Amino acid sequence: MPTNDILRERVAQRLYKELETLAEYAANQQPIASRANADEPADSTQPSDNEVYRQYILALANAVLMASPALFDAHALQVSQQQGRQATIEQIAAVRKAVLLRLSVGEYVVVASTLSAATIALTAAAEPEPVSSEHDEPSAGVGRFDGITKKYLSLLLASNRVGAQRLVLEEAESGTDVRDLYLHVLQPAQREVGNLWHSSTITVAQEHYCTAATASLMAQLQPYFQRTPRNGHRLLAACVAGDLHTLGLQMVADFLEYEGWEVCYLGASTPLDSIRRMAAEQGVDLLLTAASMPHHVPLLSELVAALRRDAITRHVKVLVGGRPFAQDAALWESTGADAWASNAEEAVAVVQGLFAQEKKPAQASSAITA
């Protein structure tokens, strides 16, 4: 392992180990609660100062370990949506003081550039542009489903799960391709739910309600997928331990099943060794996995390394996805994966490319049936 990689790993492990101490010191340097109006009652739903700084240190450790300053940038920008840009810059300064106190000069140099990059990104960040306007030209597919998406999301936020699901099921019953409903209704709606949660517009309970309703709807949509001849390939889909966000993974698995793949779906929070053993036992050709948060990315790296060490699973292609990989376009390569995709439609194209030269003889054609 190169010297720089060894140093990065050592610094990251120290940040993980001293997480609580560093968070407490940073909180003492720059209390977050002190900005609140003293005449207003404390909001018990807001995280404590220590927890806010704990998330900063965790994001910093992940960014250092993966050599990806963009991961910390993304965390800081997310916090700034709730705390404000200037407050976030001050909080990063408090983190800087904490690590400067605890780390050696050489170790501090490793993290300083990441902290500085985040501060620069926050300083330079422009106000978010509106998603669309009356003069915008809708992209293909979006205009057709825009009204359905808005109504679906509105019904979910009003806790009307039955109405929201019925809206989409009626589209499927009328002959609308389920893949279009996934891509242009469910996916953008869930993305907006995530944005609303990140900005504290909705609660964790509301986010869970919307996500559970969408997961239930996806199960109800299964009968509307067209049957497709099998292509002779098998895939395993699983999230690593601690990752409970499976909707994106399920969408990709469903799209590939439509394309003729045999799917073994394990779902959320699966131990690394269980994934590796199942891949070997099932004789899979492809592993689908994802990271919903930056701290899941190192686990993906461990998973890929474990597959590569085992002669039985060494051949397995690995496709990754998730928000951290969208935040850093080069991050997927550092995990050792074979490719990444940002959505289910893109994943199908990427997988077709990965297996273009590996068509198995004596298998049914993968062409879509009429």
Rank of each mutant, 00 (worst) to 15 (best):
Y25G: 06
P47Y: 02
A125E: 07
A23D: 06
D49C: 07
S34M: 11
D49I: 03
G84I: 12
P128W: 01
D136T: 08
D136M: 05
A26M: 04
Q78C: 09
V64K: 00
A112F: 11
P47V: 12
V95M: 04
V131L: 03
R35P: 06
P31M: 15
V131T: 06
E127K: 01
I89V: 15
V79I: 14
Y108T: 06
L60I: 10
L22W: 01
D49S: 12
E18G: 00
I57R: 05
F72R: 01
A42V: 11
V111S: 09
E127L: 06
E90N: 12
N37I: 03
V64W: 02
H135M: 02
Q46S: 11
N50K: 11
A124P: 05
Q82L: 15
L19A: 03
S34N: 08
A117R: 08
Q46G: 05
Y25P: 04
V99L: 05
S80Q: 08
P69W: 00
A118I: 15
A23C: 09
A112K: 13
L58P: 05
P31L: 13
N50I: 15
S68L: 02
H135K: 04
E40R: 03
A124R: 09
E127Q: 06
I89H: 13
K97S: 10
L71D: 04
D39V: 10
A23I: 13
A38V: 07
A112S: 15
P130C: 03
S34D: 07
A118D: 08
Y108A: 07
S132I: 04
A112C: 10
Q29V: 15
D49W: 15
T45L: 11
P130M: 05
A98V: 13
Q91D: 11
A76T: 13
E24G: 00
V95Q: 00
Y25L: 09
A33K: 10
T45D: 06
P69Y: 00
A118Q: 09
A36P: 00
S132P: 00
A63C: 05
A98D: 06
A98T: 07
A98G: 09
T123W: 15
A76Y: 08
L58M: 10
A87V: 14
K17Y: 11
A93F: 08
T119D: 11
E90V: 13
N28I: 14
T119N: 10
A74L: 01
A74R: 03
